[in-house]
Amino acid sequence: MHVIRSLHEITALIPLLKEALPIDVSFAICDREKFIGYWPGERIDLGIRSGQRLNPDEPLARTVRNGLSLKDVVPASFYGYEFVGTAIPLYGEEREIMGGLAVQVRTQAELRGIAEHIADSLSQAQSQLESITSASKELRHFSGQLLNLARQTAGHVGQTEEVVSIVKAVADQTNMLGINASIEAAHAGEKGRGFGIVAGEIRKLSSETVASANTIRGTLQAFRQAMAEMNGSIERMAALAERQSVSSDQIEAFIADIGAMSDRLSQYARRL
């Protein structure tokens, strides 16, 4: 219980207390109904005037009404910004409540708001990054599959070219047989005319087969070149997906570190 002879005893001490305290505070003294003095701080000025009636919901009014010391966070709806207020009742010599003394310290609500905004932004960025990371890993997986498929296709092209080479070799041999058959038909004279006609058709078919084989070989060569270029592109895409995945993991870890610092900043602001 704080017993005083008059409220003016306290008002005379306020300037000395403000100078002695190492933090920026404001003081208010009231009687049972109204403020009788207010000393603002540099960063906290509630705009209270002497003679201003007490708000029945603020800590100082409840202290005077109930005779209890209070410490509470006063929301911004009262004075425009949030602050921590402590209030104690002041008793007269007859043990009656004469009024109250309040000390106000502005909270770091703005700092907490910034920390919370950072946390919200990081949460959204984390969600987006997780989606990108997932897509990057999926791209890396499909790039690997596509690269394997491209290599298998290149192998099949090589095998097909071997078959074409065999077909051309058979056609060349057939052509030689046709030539030999034509020579023998010529030696046989009139009796070998029919055989000569067959030999000519064999040579014609052989020539067409060689021409087709050469065309197929040219097509396969162009296809092999295109496959080689595609393989190079797929390999570069797979390498890019790998680097993107690694970068996404690093950025995700960086965001997690910033989130942890934001949490510590918010906790620090609450303690101020």
Results as ranks from 00 to 15, higher is better:
1 M>D: 02
3 V>M: 11
3 V>Q: 09
6 S>D: 03
8 H>Q: 15
9 E>C: 07
12 A>D: 02
15 P>C: 08
15 P>Q: 05
19 E>H: 12
23 I>Y: 12
23 I>D: 11
24 D>M: 09
27 F>L: 06
29 I>V: 15
31 D>Q: 04
32 R>A: 08
35 F>G: 00
35 F>I: 10
36 I>N: 06
37 G>H: 01
40 P>Y: 02
42 E>L: 07
45 D>L: 10
48 I>C: 07
53 R>C: 03
55 N>L: 14
56 P>T: 08
56 P>L: 05
58 E>F: 04
59 P>K: 15
60 L>I: 06
63 T>E: 06
63 T>W: 12
65 R>A: 06
67 G>D: 09
68 L>N: 07
69 S>H: 09
70 L>Y: 09
71 K>L: 03
72 D>L: 15
74 V>Q: 01
75 P>V: 02
75 P>D: 07
78 F>H: 13
80 G>R: 03
82 E>Y: 07
84 V>H: 12
87 A>V: 01
87 A>P: 08
94 E>Q: 13
95 R>P: 01
96 E>Q: 11
97 I>V: 10
99 G>T: 00
101 L>T: 04
104 Q>A: 12
105 V>T: 04
108 Q>R: 14
108 Q>E: 07
111 L>F: 11
112 R>H: 02
117 H>D: 12
118 I>V: 11
119 A>I: 08
120 D>S: 13
122 L>E: 12
122 L>F: 07
122 L>A: 10
123 S>W: 13
127 S>I: 02
128 Q>C: 08
130 E>N: 06
134 S>I: 01
136 S>T: 14
136 S>N: 15
137 K>P: 01
143 S>G: 12
144 G>N: 01
148 N>T: 00
149 L>N: 03
150 A>C: 01
151 R>V: 10
155 G>H: 04
157 V>Y: 08
160 T>P: 02
163 V>R: 14
165 S>R: 14
165 S>E: 00
165 S>D: 00
167 V>P: 04
168 K>F: 05
169 A>L: 06
169 A>G: 14
171 A>S: 08
172 D>Q: 09
172 D>W: 05
178 G>K: 05
181 A>P: 02
182 S>F: 02
182 S>Y: 08
184 E>T: 10
185 A>W: 03
185 A>P: 00
188 A>L: 03
189 G>P: 05
190 E>R: 14
190 E>L: 05
190 E>T: 03
190 E>N: 10
197 I>E: 10
197 I>H: 15
198 V>G: 05
199 A>S: 14
199 A>Q: 14
205 L>C: 08
206 S>G: 09
208 E>H: 12
211 A>V: 00
215 T>N: 14
217 R>L: 13
217 R>I: 00
218 G>Q: 14
219 T>N: 11
219 T>H: 13
222 A>W: 09
222 A>C: 05
224 R>D: 09
226 A>M: 12
230 M>P: 00
230 M>C: 09
231 N>K: 10
234 I>V: 05
236 R>I: 07
238 A>N: 15
239 A>V: 11
240 L>S: 15
241 A>Q: 03
247 S>N: 02
249 D>A: 10
251 I>V: 11
251 I>F: 10
258 I>W: 04
259 G>A: 15
259 G>I: 02
262 S>G: 06
263 D>G: 09
263 D>E: 15
264 R>I: 02
265 L>A: 11
265 L>Q: 08
266 S>T: 06
269 A>C: 04
269 A>S: 03
270 R>G: 01
270 R>F: 06
